[in-house]
Design a protein around this nucleic acid. Sequence first.
DNA 1: GATTAAACGAGACGGTACGTCATGTCTTCTA
DNA 2: TAGAAGACATGACGTACCGTCTCGTTTAATC
Lengths: 218, 218, 218, 218
Amino acid sequence: MSNSPDPTRRSNASRQAILDAAAELIAEVGFRRLTIEAIAVRAGVGKQTIYRWWPSKGAVVFDALLALQHDADGLRIPESGDLGVDLRLLLRETAAGLVDPHLEEPYRAVLTEIQHDPVLVEELRERLLGPLLSATRDWIRRAQDRCQINAATDPAVVVDVLYGPLFYRWLLRTGPLDEDYLQALTAAVLPVITASSGPNPLRASVEGSPPVVAGIED
Amino acid sequence: MSNSPDPTRRSNASRQAILDAAAELIAEVGFRRLTIEAIAVRAGVGKQTIYRWWPSKGAVVFDALLALQHDADGLRIPESGDLGVDLRLLLRETAAGLVDPHLEEPYRAVLTEIQHDPVLVEELRERLLGPLLSATRDWIRRAQDRCQINAATDPAVVVDVLYGPLFYRWLLRTGPLDEDYLQALTAAVLPVITASSGPNPLRASVEGSPPVVAGIED
Amino acid sequence: MSNSPDPTRRSNASRQAILDAAAELIAEVGFRRLTIEAIAVRAGVGKQTIYRWWPSKGAVVFDALLALQHDADGLRIPESGDLGVDLRLLLRETAAGLVDPHLEEPYRAVLTEIQHDPVLVEELRERLLGPLLSATRDWIRRAQDRCQINAATDPAVVVDVLYGPLFYRWLLRTGPLDEDYLQALTAAVLPVITASSGPNPLRASVEGSPPVVAGIED
Amino acid sequence: MSNSPDPTRRSNASRQAILDAAAELIAEVGFRRLTIEAIAVRAGVGKQTIYRWWPSKGAVVFDALLALQHDADGLRIPESGDLGVDLRLLLRETAAGLVDPHLEEPYRAVLTEIQHDPVLVEELRERLLGPLLSATRDWIRRAQDRCQINAATDPAVVVDVLYGPLFYRWLLRTGPLDEDYLQALTAAVLPVITASSGPNPLRASVEGSPPVVAGIED
DNA sequence: GATTAAACGAGACGGTACGTCATGTCTTCTA
DNA sequence: TAGAAGACATGACGTACCGTCTCGTTTAATC
């Protein structure tokens, strides 16, 4: 007694028209004023056709974003062997996606939607973020193998340190993601991820300051 | 010929009731299903009283968040002189706010709303983010004066590197913000911001890789 | 590029429910406190369904009134050949409608609404008043053919003289529309409409008073 | 423990400004879209000053109408002794008020309001209609004394027959109240009210048709 | 002339209903 | 028989007014 439709009978023309219409409209009016009805009209499609195949407006936008990214061929992780060069390229490509006129609004919309939609966050993890993050983690691990990145650091943490600052500035709009910024960010982040060799008195305080840590770890 | 209401005649009881109701409701049903009507009913207030004083639902939630924060006395920036200790405390306090049962939903809501509301982003900059960020930047500058942080790095970039990873993980829900994570993040971030003195071959590649940089800097 | 809905797809169940609810509510609370929202709730119908098919609250009540009248089978014009008898029957049937517990309020509401709504007055003319008045005028003409009514008088004027006094008393509530009144009114009106035979000095003054008439006819 | 205000301290300037504003606004936007707030603003008066002295919007308009009528000096009942002349003058003056550009809308508004407001209908009876109707009835009685009007007819019925047709046409907008109509109406109505002496076969049927009347009077 | 109490203007308030909009479901017609 | 078209019940939107309720500010009448 399943009510789910038969995917083999799905009209691909309709699917494509819907994603195109969604992409166009989100660029025109933004996510807040984007409506299912408008998408249906623009796509020349019945509303039910949208409701049949997507659970929410956010899911449509998410799929539209994926389609746009495929057109742009996605994020490639550079690997020249030179960590500084690779890092700059990686950050630049990431930033380029965030400020791309066609992609920025959908990105913000998806980021927005996952805050309140557990289904969509799962979707995002599996189909957009997951591949990207695991590729990044592999890239990090290889750099660790080459002793370019401190092997003691969890790759997941390195990922946060790489992408986090970029997203933070982008989301809070505290400044532009221009070349100057990327340059400064790369210079600042690079030492974090490089192998730490000599003793570092500050670092020591983190690992060993007993009274504070005791209080903290309660 | 101004149509704006007279703030001196504003009912403080209504204002407080509205903020309380908003805080309660956002915790109960989340931001998406939060409605102005429900806030008005819960607060025992006419809808117009909300529309008179706030331009949008997001603005109400933002004020409710500010009020909650004031109750919690806000974020204090620690300054023991030990950079590692201070950094951990700072990150821990920040993270504590993000995962506080009363604050998490409002935080996500505000973060969400500023993506699509230029007025609110300005409000946020002035009244929530601004004070916090400038305090953080001052803290950084003092640490730079003590030669605990590389004086060549723009404090704004340091801010991004400090808070960015935390927000990134929190927004994308790629993992918990628990003590283990904060410990690892502190350990990873600390070297970024400490003064780098000796020659660093990787750093050199960032500053000097001619062919790539040439292409980039066009 | 028409935005008007397709009448062939109209839900007749909703239509009937709306008219019934309107009739009930107007009897319960009167026209002034009758609201579209209450009609929608009582009818188990969305407000939009009302707004889709009727332009105003008055129009709904008007249709409700028409439906009630159809149930009561409307006004029949009697024609026994005896003018006095017919006239009394006509006035009595008219008065019966005006004081019917189910119809009085809707009648007053419609009369009220047409004072301020040109669209509704047209509607009224075509669908309620028109048929009644033209039937009455035909009835008058046949009586004139039988020389029971002065053939020189415009049937439209006769109509006013027939119905006007009744409506006047009903609208201004200057007295009851009971049998005594109908009896007196019939007795008074009958001579108006009967063929005038003998010379009438007063009548003469109307037709011949030169100075006054001169001033009037300018 | 009376809450009613002290009439001796009433501001006459405000009273007049309110009535003027009401008269202006009803001419501009009609009664339906007339609001107390708009009257208050236009009159430069606080809303409470209106609510303090009038129980309803209809009451304000009623007073505004009375004031307008006083300016126009009201309806004088002509009495030349020639019934036909007097009747024409009376109908003409009545009709003139109904179609006066300044008075028509307020008249319709008041007529409308009394349908649903028992307080106002009483007010109307006492202050507007009452004096007019009793004057008319006196006029009729004097004509009856002069044997110009059938003394057997109740003056109240005569009043209805006089004014009713005019109001009927005016309210239902079935035709203009121009000189031609007034001429025809006068000619038609005059015989009703004149003394009928000789035998009238139709009249007889009214008074004596047993079978029909019997059925009716049950 | 100072006091004082009520009417006044202004307008914020808790409400109700408005008419519109978008949602997600359901039905009808068409390819 | 899937899909377009769109009517439907639902319910929130933001607005307009309602009638009540403070607020100072006149404005008379009393002291």
